[in-house]
Nucleic acid binder design. Structure first.
Lengths: 120, 120
DNA sequence: AAACTATGTAACCGTATAGTTACTCATTAT
DNA sequence: ATAATGAGTAACTATACGGTTACATAGTTT
């Protein structure tokens, strides 16, 4: 059951990561799993607010929840972050090779094409 | 002027990337810079909608705009993605080393501490 | 079983977002 | 000069979001 082989929607992942509080929660969980209440203590917002952030993180599979007595212990799940990492892959070439200049070339090419097009 | 040494807010970057249309625009620009109109043609939504997406991408510094005649040519700027990449860095250890088991340990430790705490 | 505790949900509010159509502005073509 | 074209902005609408307080639920203590 630990390996459900889920596909993580970049949709859910990126929008979960868009909120600073949620990123801070993840950072906190890097240092170890914690129950909801203790997580909430680390933030100036109300506990229900954190509860909602945790739900969003859960739906994005960025955290997993285990019930321990009346505690709900949250644990970081880095899988969706791996997905982000591999999404970034296609852009890596852009900062590793000098592709800016190539881009400039493509642009120039396009603009030439544009002017040619005008002459039908 | 090309090197303004800007700091990219993960805030702006992640929320820009949260929208599938905007990610698609970036993917499109990977293949070369294009004017706004041509970008818009690639999508089923109205041109003003794309215009607004482009503004958001601009504010996130994920694209740059150059005016060429009456065209506005958009070019991908991978810098903020590099920032995302380095934000991810701190999580890489989580999927490279086997930290899951360590986490389990920390949890157990915490729970023990909890029970001890009860006894004042 | 009654009281307490941890956590999630409901209902509500204000603001942001993505989309639309209508309009404006600047540049190119006639 | 006038028309046409590319692109951004304005105004509006519906929905999502983050926050709040009040309430519900489940487990733990006494």
């Amino acid at each position: 059951m630990r390996h459900r082989s889920v596909t993580y929607s970049p949709e859910a992942t990126f929008s979960a990561l868009a909120d600073p509080t949620r990123r801070a929660v993840l950072d906190l969980l890097r240092k170890g799993s914690q129950p909801a209440g203790r997580i909430a203590q680390a933030f100036p917002v109300s506990r229900p607010a954190i509860s909602k952030h945790l739900r969003r993180l859960r739906r994005a599979h960025l955290v997993e929840q285990r019930r321990v007595g009346r505690l709900r212990v949250y644990q970081l799940n880095p899988e969706p972050l791996k997905a982000v990492d591999s999404w970034l892959e296609r852009y890596r070439s852009f900062w590793h090779t000098r592709l800016g200049s190539l881009q400039a070339y493509v642009e120039a090419e396009y603009e030439k094409e544009q002017s040619r097009a005008k002459e039908r």
